[in-house]
């Protein structure tokens, strides 16, 4: 015992060190590519198939669809967070963190800040593609900024829930595939790809209250008329899910079984 133990690093330092590590994990895993390729393919396919059909119904699909694709990409960013966290949990890295003097919020926070960055890049890529096919922010810069912030916020909130799930999971593949079904159901049973009146009457109430519908509708509002009453449901959902998942994520790291 010749060297005295240094005091553990402060939470800010630990956060920065772990965030840098997580960023590198995201780059090594090419996670941004993966979270963008699928939505872009989807985007291209839907545009080719439905563009003219929707035009017959008076819907400009190049303006209608991109917010849905943005939601899709942000959900995939969140889901891949689950995959990465579960991988770290399985390898034993998380257990080692747990034996170290670390603030309870450091590990989840360092996860979410990187997810926010990944979401920002993914959203930017989708928006560039959207603009190429004719998508425009007709409500000006404020709407555009609100659009991007809301999209990133949605990704972070969902990522918090996914990270909490991933921390408790034993198998990354299993955890990820467990999320695939709710993801598919929630995106299709929402106003993402068709307006609400295209659904059968009995399903319309479900579509209306869906958090995914709220998110897509708010993004559509922000990209066309600007912030109006359609943004509120999304913000309420963001707050509710943020509290719920934020609590779950913070708890999951220091949870002693």
């Amino acid at each position: 015992m010749t060297v005295a133990s240094p005091p553990a690093a402060g939470p800010a330092r630990q956060f920065a060190v772990l965030a840098a590590r997580n960023l590198r994990q995201a780059r090594v895993g090419r996670s941004i590519g993966l979270t963008v390729v699928f939505p872009l393919t989807f985007f291209a396919g839907f545009m080719v198939v439905f563009h003219r059909l929707m035009a017959d119904y008076g819907i400009a699909y190049e303006q209608f669809l991109p917010p849905a694709i943005v939601v899709q990409t942000t959900v995939l960013v969140a889901m891949s967070a689950c995959y990465m966290v579960a991988g770290d949990a399985r390898s034993g890295l998380i257990s080692r963190y747990r034996t170290l003097p670390m603030g309870a919020a450091v590990v989840p926070a360092a996860r979410l800040v990187v997810d926010a960055a990944r979401a920002a890049v993914a959203v930017a890529v989708i928006l560039v593609a959207a603009v190429v096919v004719g998508f425009r922010f007709t409500a000006g810069a404020a709407g555009a900024v609100g659009f991007v912030l809301l999209a990133i916020g949605f990704a972070v909130v969902l990522a918090a829930g996914c990270a909490a799930l991933g921390l408790g999971a034993r198998d990354p593949e299993q955890a990820y595939s467990a999320l695939t079904l709710p993801y598919l159901v929630l995106t299709t049973v929402s106003t993402a790809f068709v307006p609400v009146d295209a659904f059968p009457g009995w399903l319309q109430p479900v579509v209306r209250v869906s958090p995914f519908s709220a998110q897509v509708d708010a993004l559509r509002a922000l990209s066309t008329e600007g912030a109006d009453q359609r943004v509120w449901p999304a913000l309420v959902w963001l707050l509710v899910l943020g509290l719920l998942f934020g609590f779950a994520a913070a708890r999951s790291f220091r949870r002693t079984r």
Binding site: R21, R24, Q25, V28, D88, S91, G92, L93, S95, R96, R98, T99
Partner: peptide
Amino acid sequence: GQFAALDEML
């Protein structure tokens, strides 16, 4: 321990 490991990527 076998339960507490390193970062495989690094």
